[in-house]
């Protein structure tokens, strides 16, 4: 089979399996044991794990370094890279370094604004945006050329990921922005956490109608609600998040110690629907600070065992 990167994720998707990806946030320090522990929960339960890059603009162990620990522990990483913290020179240098150490997936993101983090006075770089980052990685891989045009001695072969928010207004524009990311060179898309199933059905349908799902693998994001408080926070405080009232109603409808279980149940129902939805190639599980529950969620969602590819 013709492979762009040969990553496990690419092999799973190209073999036609329903992909299941996870997420690991690197530690706020050099605590390698804590990182390895998180990785161990995901190993064998997911096809690969996103390694976040200074998520919410808080300083953490660098994404490429944590990705290397992930490889050492036997879990494939998806190296996240945001445009906030480095310019095109640093990005390309890191991409070469990451690839040469065995990293095969990259996720190209704008990044949360620096004002949200623990260094709000930092200069936001945004030399290029996420769309241009996708283009740059693709040009490096397929043409063997740096963004500036010079030849690369041994180009990095990465499977290129991008994010999409299917919910934010203007809704009508979302599928066009997806189309731009596909044209820029995205191989796979991981979406914002999905709670509004009506809306994602519409979005996927439009992507199907435009022929986009034949060009890109779409993995909707799943984040199980741990509590009613979390659901309210996601609904009211997180920009771009769409949490319908019936989700909150359902969580409120069970006794307190069963709320988390209900959250997982909702997530599993969503995954079941996605398995059957035309144009969906897998799901991306973002169990935020809940890595230890991933094996249970994977089991209950019928995602185990993961395919050998």
């Amino acid at each position: 089979m013709d492979m762009k990167s040969g990553s496990r994720l690419e092999r799973v998707l190209k073999a036609g399996h329903f992909a299941f990806t996870g997420e690991v946030g690197p530690p706020r320090g050099a605590n390698v044991e804590a990182l390895k522990k998180k990785i161990s929960y995901l190993k064998g339960c997911v096809d690969m794990a996103n390694i976040t890059d200074n998520q919410t603009a808080m300083v953490r162990m660098s994404s490429w370094a944590a990705s290397l620990f992930c490889i050492q522990e036997g879990l494939e990483p998806n190296y996240q890279m945001v445009c906030r913290d480095r310019n095109r020179l640093a990005m390309q240098a890191d991409i070469l370094g990451a690839y040469s150490h065995g990293i095969r997936n990259i996720l190209c993101l704008s990044g949360d604004h620096q004002m949200f983090g623990d260094h709000p006075q930092a200069k936001g770089v945004y030399d290029i945006d996420s769309m241009q980052l996708i283009q740059m990685v693709k040009q490096m891989r397929d043409e063997g050329k740096f963004q500036g045009g010079a030849d690369i001695d041994e180009p990095p072969k990465l499977f290129i990921g991008a994010a999409a928010n299917p919910f934010a207004e203007p809704f009508e524009w979302r599928v066009h922005r997806l189309a731009k990311k596909v044209r820029a060179g995205a191989d796979f898309i991981q979406t914002q956490c999905v709670y509004n199933m009506d809306k994602i059905r519409q979005w996927i349908k439009r992507a199907n109608d435009m022929g986009l799902t034949e060009q890109v693998y779409i993995l909707p994001g799943i984040t199980p609600m741990k509590s009613v408080g979390m659901a309210n926070y996601m609904k009211n405080k997180v920009p771009g998040m769409d949490v319908p009232d019936e989700i909150i109603k359902r969580l409120k409808g069970v006794e307190k110690k069963k709320v988390a279980d209900e959250g997982i149940k909702i997530a599993c129902e969503q995954i079941e629907e996605f398995k059957e939805m035309k144009g969906v190639a897998g799901v991306h599980l973002m169990a935020i600070e809940w890595e230890h529950r991933v094996p249970e969620i994977a089991e209950r969602a019928g995602m185990l065992p993961r395919p050998e590819v």
């Binding site: 445009c83 906030r84 704008s110 990044g111 949360d112 604004h113 004002m115 936001g124 945004y126 945006d129 996420s130 769309m131 241009q132 994010a163 999409a164 928010n165 934010a168 207004e169 524009w173 922005r177 731009k180 914002q192 920009p239 771009g240």
Partner: peptide
Amino acid sequence: AKSLFNGPCGGTNN
């Protein structure tokens, strides 16, 4: 706020 040339980003909020 991010000087994006291909926006909006995922943080756009109604």
